[in-house]
Design a protein around this nucleic acid. Sequence first.
DNA 1: GTCTATATCCCGATAGAC
DNA 2: GTCTATCGGGATATAGAC
Lengths: 204, 204
Amino acid sequence: MPAKGGRYHHGDLRSALVDAAIGVIAERGVRDFSMAEASRRLGVTTAAPYRHFADRDELLAAVAIRALTVFATMLSAAADAADTPAERLAGMAGAYVRFAAQQRPLFDTLFNSGLDKSRHPELQRAWEPVDALLSTAVLEVCDGDAVAAEALSDAIEASAHGYAMLLSDGEYGHGPDVVSVTADRAIASARALIAGRRALRTPV
Amino acid sequence: MPAKGGRYHHGDLRSALVDAAIGVIAERGVRDFSMAEASRRLGVTTAAPYRHFADRDELLAAVAIRALTVFATMLSAAADAADTPAERLAGMAGAYVRFAAQQRPLFDTLFNSGLDKSRHPELQRAWEPVDALLSTAVLEVCDGDAVAAEALSDAIEASAHGYAMLLSDGEYGHGPDVVSVTADRAIASARALIAGRRALRTPV
DNA sequence: GTCTATATCCCGATAGAC
DNA sequence: GTCTATCGGGATATAGAC
């Protein structure tokens, strides 16, 4: 990081821009993120970013890619902390919610930026580790039944995503323990979905 | 509705603006909605809307209020079509998803506009019918246990919301039957959540 | 690889005439 | 209640100098 009058000589402006973008998103939200503001924070011209990113969306995609490495790390840690397949899934649901709360700008970039995944192949590839974590965990629970696994995977993902979104939207308020309460509820819901599906024998 | 060169003389510009706004949102998304564009579509000046709405957010809030009447109608119809409390809840989960798919601009205005509910008391009041539908249905299932009811209510809402958001984001693709499949999955998840909670006796 | 400068565009909101 | 006109602000993106 350069001092006041400092310049970026090497390729580190690229990664500095990603950092700055995260800061801007944290303070103004993804939808109000702008290249110009990110540039201003680094003390470079609004033209500088265009040497490293074709346009605004490409910078956002770079932020999203960084977000996915953090997301995957949190999910993976939660999975490792449990010892049964079902508890691994439940733990990941909790981690999903905590990620949304603790890494709000990253979560928003992933899910509220309006980024078109299909237009950014690198971003699409960056999802693979996350997808893999979830699908292997769910396959264990379903004993290899791929059809049931997909439905259960979607169910737990949707539940965790819903809790995360509503929490992030302030629907549950902003108290000090809202995050852990919501994470616990996501965990409980994951358990209930697993148990409930067994009880109902509902493959869909 | 006026003819080409027509003017709005009465108070009907207000409701015409709401209609136009929905059109703009449908085509450009909530985040790219602008007063100016809505005005243009009606053939009025960009200054005209400010006689009826203090600012952009107030127009969006008016759209949100209209959205809630449609939302409540769909939820209510789904609830009436079922005959057990549990099935009423499941049906509402399905309606939640169908609302997101069939009324995309309205759904986006409610959940992706960045509108601050607490700043618009009328909007807050407009939520009450929807909240009432959900909470009475869930209380029936929980036999009056208010604590369990709140947790179950949040669980089903989060699940339906997650399905709706991910569907709306194109996460499930855009085939012709994606909507009904996703709605069915939301219904199945609601059933599983109810059954699973009973099996696990998880009040949280 | 960054800077200066600029072209272009769009938006929100207001003032005052009619 | 709408119009004309306009102020002020911010954004994306490009051209050319260094």
